[in-house]
């Protein structure tokens, strides 16, 4: 294969105490690909996402982002654990959007977006501001630049969170159930922004319960249950005619 995969997971395992959350997960995400992960809660979807972003350390297996191991540096056949600032550097290239938005409560929408570029990438304030205004306008919040998170609806907050992640010019975007905490009528605006992002060629790994979005936008849909990937395939096949009984069972309950 000539192209380096954006994400390459090989038999990734993760456990919290005695609780095995990931029991050997393998998947590959190509640059520009949109992958949706579906599955019941507790199936390890969010943990997988957090592992990709170095927020959790994996216990076994191999996980690489853009050809580089997550959390470790390989020299010869020895692995060295990365230092904290090295990990931080890698995280800076990966955007992450959380279920509960996690906007910084003491900052305006624009300050939220400008914070990391200025603090982490040392972008001049003026330039960061210009980019911030442009990004917020793009997600439809050009008139809410100076609003604080508490003054915004959930859908607006989530769009600010997406703009905040994009401000770091990430090569990969991770979405952890971005619409699960939203009122139904606010879901559409967020999905619209994500759809546009996918069309622009952003590599995206999306944990979601929005089957419509998965069907329409994803290149690949993965069904996880009990810490393993049960089945993966193009959306039409996986959502339309799943091979596995567990997948059929799950889909019959959510669709």
């Amino acid at each position: 294969m000539s192209v380096t995969p954006m994400i390459e997971a090989d038999l990734v395992c993760k456990q919290f105490g005695r609780n095995e959350v990931l029991k050997g997960v393998s998947l590959t995400v190509q640059p520009g690909e949109v992958m949706c992960i579906i599955g019941p809660s507790g199936s390890g979807k969010s943990t997988l996402l957090r592992c990709v972003n170095h927020l959790e350390q994996i216990d076994a297996g191999r996980l690489a982002v853009d050809g580089e191991l997550v959390g470790y540096r390989q020299e010869g056949d020895k692995l060295y654990e990365l230092r904290e600032n090295e990990v931080a550097q890698k995280r800076a290239d990966i955007g992450m959007v959380f279920q509960h938005f996690n906007l910084f409560g003491h900052m305006t929408a624009l300050q939220n977006v400008c914070e990391a570029p200025v603090q982490v990438k040392r972008v001049p304030k003026k330039q960061a501001r210009e980019v911030g205004v442009e990004l917020l306008t793009r997600v439809g919040l050009g008139d809410k630049l100076d609003a604080y998170p508490s003054q915004l609806s959930g859908g607006q907050q989530q769009r600010v969170a997406i703009a905040r992640a994009l401000a770091m010019r990430p090569k990969l975007m991770l979405f952890d159930e971005p619409t699960s905490a939203l009122d139904p009528e606010l879901v559409g605006d967020v999905l619209k922004v994500m759809r546009e992002l996918a069309q622009e060629g952003m590599t995206m790994l999306v944990v979601t319960h929005e089957m419509g979005f998965a069907r329409e936008v994803a290149d690949t849909v993965v069904f996880m249950d009990g810490g393993v990937i049960v089945e993966a395939g193009p959306p039409a096949q996986l959502l339309g005619s799943p091979r596995e009984a567990r997948t059929r069972d799950f889909l019959s309950r959510v669709l």
Partner: peptide, 19 residues
Amino acid sequence: GQTHAAQALGMSRLQTMRR
């Protein structure tokens, strides 16, 4: 979640604490 968000943006532990 505030710490997670700051970390995910590549901020260091000290930056996260201070900012």
